[in-house]
Simulated scan of single mutants.
Amino acid sequence: MFSLSVCVLTFNSARLLKDVLSPLVDIADELIIVDSGSSDDTLSICQEFGITPSYRAYTTHGEQMNFAISLTNNSWVLCMDSDEIIDQKTVEEIKKIKAGATPETDMAFRISRHWFVLGQEVHNIYPVTSPDYPVRLFNKESVMFNSRPVDDAAEGYKNTAVISGFVKHDTFFSIHEVFNKLNGYTTRLVKYKKVTPSLARGFFSAFGSFWKWYVFKNGWKDGKVGVITGTYAVAYSFMKYLKAWYQHDGKRK
């Protein structure tokens, strides 16, 4: 048996935090929460669970997770976001992993994560299909998160296995949040990553995203919510090039 530290990132996460933390306390020998400046009831909810969050100003998701990992006292860590709710089967499977022979340090475990947008499970949300299987349980001696501005991932493992169960990723609870996050994601992407400053490429990318994510990846099957996720894919694909073009054009002037 090995001890497990669970890391959770929060920012104005009161909406789901009790549902997120309740199953995690059942498997955590240590629970670390890193908050990036919540102004809602997030901190008081953490106190209800006997947890005092650490503060770190947000840079990237990967850097935030790595900071949380650096605070842990155990080698094995489970990293979760504050809109991801694990079910009882996932809890039981993680307990079995903990109770069994300690895995090799380069072994990692994936979760089966199903995406929900506006309260409805969807086939995709750019740039991932649902479910996806991110690595979330691993040994910190071998695995850490990269620092990509968006869509970061854990790296350093050699072998993986999928944990049986269901993780509900209840993201984007309002149309306002959909496009607010779209704006934030594309701004960070252009800031930290080289994006070709081309309006023409933006138009072609947006057109391709519509066919790929709404048509071929079955976004149309999700009804009204599919229209929202399809629009998100198109807007994301175009706006990253638009922002890069605007910044590049401004520097020339």
Rank of each mutant, 00 (worst) to 15 (best):
167 V>P: 00
126 Y>I: 00
246 Y>P: 10
66 N>V: 03
16 L>M: 11
140 K>I: 06
188 R>H: 10
187 T>V: 11
68 A>D: 01
36 S>V: 00
148 R>G: 09
1 M>V: 05
222 D>N: 10
171 T>E: 12
41 D>C: 09
197 P>F: 03
195 V>A: 01
169 H>Q: 08
247 Q>N: 12
173 F>P: 02
23 P>E: 04
229 T>N: 05
24 L>D: 13
157 Y>V: 11
21 L>A: 04
94 I>N: 14
30 E>V: 01
236 Y>H: 15
235 A>R: 09
46 C>S: 14
147 S>C: 07
192 Y>R: 12
232 Y>V: 14
198 S>F: 03
178 V>D: 10
63 E>W: 01
243 K>H: 00
151 D>Q: 11
6 V>P: 12
215 V>F: 08
97 I>P: 01
168 K>F: 04
52 T>Y: 05
32 I>F: 06
199 L>P: 05
20 V>K: 07
156 G>Y: 02
217 K>L: 05
83 D>G: 15
53 P>Q: 05
29 D>E: 10
161 A>H: 06
118 L>H: 01
130 S>R: 08
187 T>Q: 15
24 L>V: 15
136 R>F: 03
205 S>E: 14
52 T>L: 11
42 T>D: 15
121 E>A: 14
185 Y>L: 09
55 Y>F: 10
251 K>G: 00
168 K>R: 12
162 V>F: 08
229 T>F: 08
53 P>D: 10
129 T>P: 02
132 D>A: 01
215 V>D: 04
166 F>N: 09
98 K>E: 03
250 G>D: 07
94 I>E: 10
2 F>T: 05
15 R>Y: 15
73 N>V: 05
19 D>H: 13
195 V>N: 14
106 D>T: 09
169 H>V: 06
68 A>G: 00
203 F>M: 15
7 C>Y: 05
92 E>K: 14
87 D>P: 13
193 K>Q: 11
185 Y>N: 08
170 D>K: 13
180 N>P: 05
100 G>D: 07
54 S>N: 12
38 S>N: 09
167 V>D: 06
126 Y>F: 04
15 R>P: 15
38 S>M: 08
182 L>S: 12
253 K>L: 02
4 L>G: 07
145 F>Y: 11
244 A>V: 09
231 T>E: 10
59 T>I: 13
56 R>D: 08
154 A>S: 09
10 T>L: 08
158 K>N: 12
187 T>D: 15
19 D>G: 08
133 Y>K: 14
12 N>L: 12
109 F>A: 04
172 F>S: 05
44 S>L: 07
64 Q>E: 05
103 P>N: 02
39 S>D: 01
25 V>A: 07
191 K>A: 04
59 T>R: 13
200 A>F: 10
189 L>W: 12
241 Y>L: 04
44 S>R: 01
61 H>T: 10
35 D>G: 03
88 Q>S: 14
81 D>V: 07
235 A>Y: 09
